[in-house]
Simulated assay, not measured.
Amino acid sequence: MEVQQVLCMKGGDGEASYANNSLLQKKVILEVKPILEESITELYCKTFSECLKIADLGCSSGPNTFLPLWEIIDCIGATCSRFSREPPAFQIFLNDLPQNDFNAIFESLARFYERIEKEKEGMSRQCFIAGVPGSFHRRLFPDRSIHFFHSSYSLHWLSQVSSGSKITESLFIISIKLHET
């Protein structure tokens, strides 16, 4: 049996499901929010892309699925207001192992779009979300096709990262920032 089949989250909404046992993950997502905001603002200010392409690796299924995406959209909206710019379109790819409960994610998309429409006037028409099942141990996207990767509680599954890679540098920066707080 492959490790991906053994070490995956429990789907659904039962007592032992990830959806009902993910408060610690939510706490961490909220604690690193300033780092996320700083990173996404810096990226956007360098590119001012008309379409910001984001991938969330290990998105899971439950109450935390859309939390980082909301923070990113909120941060970009504030940055655009500061610079008197129109917000970009968002192309968002939610990635997790195929065993993830993608049906539950897709069923909750309507509520997410409604919240964006209600709180971010018109931005829901600029937000496009797709599921990308598969392990990030293999290539999921073409070269240079994603502007920003988000991952919370999944990078520890990496067995090897080449030294000097941007991932290694980013993890080092995030690690330092976490230890400063």
Results as ranks from 00 to 15, higher is better:
residue 13 D to E: 11
residue 170 S to P: 05
residue 11 G to V: 00
residue 100 N to S: 13
residue 6 V to M: 06
residue 176 I to Q: 07
residue 41 T to Y: 03
residue 85 R to T: 13
residue 105 I to K: 06
residue 148 F to R: 11
residue 85 R to W: 04
residue 172 F to G: 14
residue 11 G to H: 00
residue 172 F to E: 11
residue 87 P to S: 12
residue 151 S to C: 07
residue 49 S to N: 04
residue 168 T to Q: 09
residue 100 N to T: 00
residue 85 R to E: 02
residue 85 R to C: 08
residue 44 Y to D: 04
residue 4 Q to S: 14
residue 94 L to I: 02
residue 158 L to W: 13
residue 106 F to S: 10
residue 93 F to K: 09
residue 113 Y to T: 03
residue 38 E to P: 01
residue 172 F to I: 10
residue 72 I to V: 14
residue 42 E to I: 02
residue 145 S to Q: 04
residue 25 Q to E: 15
residue 38 E to K: 15
residue 94 L to G: 04
residue 119 E to N: 11
residue 134 G to F: 01
residue 126 Q to F: 13
residue 143 D to A: 05
residue 85 R to L: 14
residue 46 K to H: 13
residue 12 G to M: 12
residue 94 L to T: 08
residue 169 E to I: 05
residue 112 F to G: 04
residue 128 F to C: 06
residue 67 L to Y: 02
residue 64 N to I: 00
residue 120 K to W: 02
residue 146 I to K: 01
residue 18 Y to P: 06
residue 93 F to N: 14
residue 78 A to T: 09
residue 152 S to C: 13
residue 31 E to M: 03
residue 173 I to M: 07
residue 43 L to V: 14
residue 133 P to R: 05
residue 121 E to R: 06
residue 39 S to R: 14
residue 157 W to C: 01
residue 88 P to E: 04
residue 161 V to D: 10
residue 51 C to D: 05
residue 17 S to E: 15
residue 152 S to Q: 01
residue 59 C to N: 11
residue 43 L to Y: 13
residue 156 H to R: 15
residue 53 K to V: 13
residue 57 L to V: 09
residue 143 D to S: 06
residue 126 Q to A: 04
residue 169 E to K: 09
residue 95 N to W: 05
residue 12 G to P: 03
residue 14 G to E: 04
residue 165 S to D: 01
residue 22 S to W: 02
residue 150 H to G: 01
residue 125 R to W: 02
residue 164 G to D: 03
residue 63 P to I: 12
residue 110 A to M: 00
residue 91 Q to G: 00
residue 103 N to G: 09
residue 123 M to D: 09
residue 35 I to W: 08
residue 128 F to I: 00
residue 85 R to Q: 14
residue 112 F to W: 10
residue 167 I to H: 12
residue 11 G to M: 00
residue 23 L to Q: 14
residue 90 F to D: 05
residue 162 S to F: 14
residue 180 E to W: 10
residue 83 F to H: 15
residue 101 D to W: 13
residue 30 L to V: 02
residue 60 S to G: 15
residue 60 S to A: 15
residue 98 P to I: 10
residue 139 R to D: 00
residue 103 N to Q: 14
residue 49 S to V: 06
residue 139 R to K: 13
residue 15 E to L: 07
residue 148 F to P: 09
residue 91 Q to W: 12
residue 82 R to L: 15
residue 71 E to T: 04
residue 127 C to I: 13
residue 80 C to M: 10
residue 120 K to G: 07
residue 72 I to M: 12
residue 4 Q to W: 05
residue 160 Q to D: 11
residue 14 G to T: 09
